[in-house]
Design a protein around this nucleic acid. Sequence first.
DNA 1: ACTAATTTAAAACAAACGTTTAAATCAAAC
DNA 2: GTTTGATTTAAACGTTTGTTTTAAATTAGT
Lengths: 211, 211
Amino acid sequence: MAHTDTKKRILDAAEKLFAQQGFYATSLRMLTKEAGVNLAAVNYHFGSKEELIKAVFGRRMLPLNKMRLERLQNIKDSASAEGRPPDIKEILLAFIEPTFEFRKSGKGAQDFISMISRAFSDPRDTVRKLFLNMVEPVFQLLFELLCEALPSLPKNIVYWRLNFMIGAMAHAMSMSQMCQLIPDGLVLKVDSVSLAEQFVNFVANGLEAPL
Amino acid sequence: MAHTDTKKRILDAAEKLFAQQGFYATSLRMLTKEAGVNLAAVNYHFGSKEELIKAVFGRRMLPLNKMRLERLQNIKDSASAEGRPPDIKEILLAFIEPTFEFRKSGKGAQDFISMISRAFSDPRDTVRKLFLNMVEPVFQLLFELLCEALPSLPKNIVYWRLNFMIGAMAHAMSMSQMCQLIPDGLVLKVDSVSLAEQFVNFVANGLEAPL
DNA sequence: ACTAATTTAAAACAAACGTTTAAATCAAAC
DNA sequence: GTTTGATTTAAACGTTTGTTTTAAATTAGT
């Protein structure tokens, strides 16, 4: 029964190759060879290469976003129930932990994360907008919560700082590939737990900076 | 005499299209049409598309890096002359201001900045390493200075925080293209001066965060 | 065992790519 | 004015791309 998991084999190979080489540089011929399926299988199952990209995105992003939304909504509910502003580090962890946890779950997940980190600034409208539309609800809620947590800051400043944070996160996530710039004699802990902690530490302080 | 500035016309068009559509998606046919030159002119003047990419990078990066290195070196010298650690905001401004200033200098410069922001995480080794090699000396000196400015922090933590900063900067620089995620009723000041200030404010606080 | 949905194989498709070639054109030196 | 060398031009090169098509082989479900 090599045929029921054909779609999954394609998605896995696409995730891997898209992450390693990008969408453009990955041809359907490499991809189907890596997946061990026929060249025509992609167009048969997904219709086109672009639809395959959408499917690769959606398979991971939908559950990941659902988790983030739930945690953010919980924070919002309990904060408004107790009549206090939400806590910043709590907000950040709700957004970040699912990503870091998922990233630790395997090589495929790691590939996926570096892929979406790049999709954020993809020059092609189709790819970037596809990704942005998926992230938008999370982004909106995150922005809303941060504004409540930082009531003394103008909203447009919160907005910029939120984007600084997103850039820092995207870069940290895709850094495994580009670690050429490591100064001599520097031992890097790649432990994801402490990386998440350090990240929250850094960003929380930045967000709370006085004007 | 439309032939003496052919190289410049190609570089300008390449800078614009590479920034807007990426290296892969920009064909030499679009590029030469945009530049108003013959298709073969690229291979005649630059040898190949990859050499053209190098030239586009180098034309702006070399003077930009030179400026950054000079300012950073000045900070290092005067700090060691006065026997005190360098100031963090001073360091950040030395690195950031040339970029923001250059970015304000025109549309071509703006295109270029979003281009190199993307080159940082380019999936193709050739493009990414080309860029990293150009940035490396600045990165090293920046890291060295930050370690001196933050003597209480372990070096690997300084390293991570430096990378958070770089990610935040790259994202902020390429954000002009992707501003789809703007919440309703939010007025964004795109004034580069205040953006640089806000950026330094954010990053300086993040860098100085307690463990 | 019949039907319908997959999978494979091999081939071909038009389109676009980077690159190369050879002739035409130009600027300047003699 | 002619020659020389650098530049521009138009056309073609060979490859690769995503996609489609053909047919045969395989599988799953009623």
